[in-house]
């Protein structure tokens, strides 16, 4: 009796200790963002003089105004939103179409396509960048948002295709058979029945692609060398600190603005995100 009681107490202490350690670790994980938020509202000297105190004396909102208009982040934000929206739309469309066909039908070339998707999965992004720039230049799209969108939507979307294929494979056959008897065409079956059924996958693919496009760097960087007005937030940030090395609050405000949309998305769509990542392991 005594021994087992002691054991539960020790276990509880152990759990508490683990919880405390984990809490400390989580603080370490979140702290840089808290510091960023705090620095974005401080005066330049305050960042240095107040040490670890995160509360600003008086919120300096003009840091945001400076980043937004003077430093051009309003334009960068617009570019990033357009590029991200275009990429998400294009990726969802082409992944849903091909995932549907690959998951539900057997046809000549199916194995070849799945093989190529699997084999190119590990190719590092840096490896294909030179021909991609060359191709985009030949298409006359190098200094345009469409060029960025096409390149982002075309590189490394195997995961989205396989997510759709896996989902469509599990939908019972009777569903579309009934529709075909009613005279629905292949097109109608897909757009009116199948795509709406795949809502959860569309959500997961959209969220993952949103993050991929919003956070992309190499392609927007090399595509906008000659056209600074097309820079995305990530590229603009590097340019900003290149010329304003000492403007810490401006940097912090610009970074906060750039990260805010993805962090908000993350809080609302965490479930889809976690499912998307976990799916990679489960399959």
């Amino acid at each position: 009796m005594m021994a087992s009681e002691r054991k539960t107490i020790r276990l509880r202490w152990g759990t508490l200790l683990i919880a405390a350690l984990l809490a400390l670790l989580c603080l370490l994980w979140v702290y840089p963002f808290l510091w960023l938020l705090s620095a974005s509202l401080k005066e330049p000297l305050e960042i240095f003089s107040k040490g670890l105190n995160l509360i600003p004396d008086k919120a300096q909102w003009e840091n945001y105004a400076r980043a937004w208009s003077t430093a051009g982040f309003a334009q960068y934000m617009l570019n990033t939103i357009l590029v991200t929206a275009g990429t998400v739309l294009l990726v969802v469309l082409h992944c849903a179409l091909s995932g549907y066909v690959l998951g539900r039908y057997d046809f000549y070339g199916r194995r070849l396509i799945i093989g190529i998707l699997g084999a190119t999965f590990v190719i590092p992004a840096g490896m294909t960048i030179i021909p991609i720039v060359d191709l985009t230049q030949d298409l006359g799209l190098l200094s345009s948002r469409w060029g960025i969108i096409l390149a982002l939507a075309g590189s490394g979307q195997a995961a989205g295709i396989l997510l759709y294929a896996g989902y469509f494979q599990r939908i019972p056959k009777e569903l579309e058979e009934a529709a075909v008897i009613d005279g629905a065409s292949f097109f109608t079956v897909f757009f009116k029945i199948m795509l709406p059924l795949a809502g959860p996958v569309t959500a997961t693919v959209s969220v993952l692609t949103f993050l991929f496009a919003w956070n992309s760097f190499l392609i927007p960087l090399v595509f906008t060398f000659g056209s600074p007005e097309l820079r995305t937030l990530a590229v603009g940030m590097l340019a900003f600190v290149g010329t304003n090395e000492t403007d810490w609050p401006g940097m912090a405000a610009a970074a906060t603005l750039s990260l805010l949309p993805v962090v908000i998305l993350f809080f609302f769509a965490q479930r889809y995100l976690v499912e998307g990542f976990a799916g990679a392991v489960k399959s």
Binding site: I18, A19, F33, N215, F217, V241, M251, S258
Partner: peptide, 29 residues
């Protein structure tokens, strides 16, 4: 363990942030 969801969220937060911006911010941190 208490607060598992909160902790998971906290540890996942940096994942969703833009690598290029995190790189710049970490220079200052």
């Amino acid at each position: 363990l208490p607060f598992v969801r909160v902790m998971r969220t906290a540890l996942f937060l940096p994942v969703v942030t833009t690598g290029a911006i995190v790189g710049v911010v970490m220079r200052f941190v």
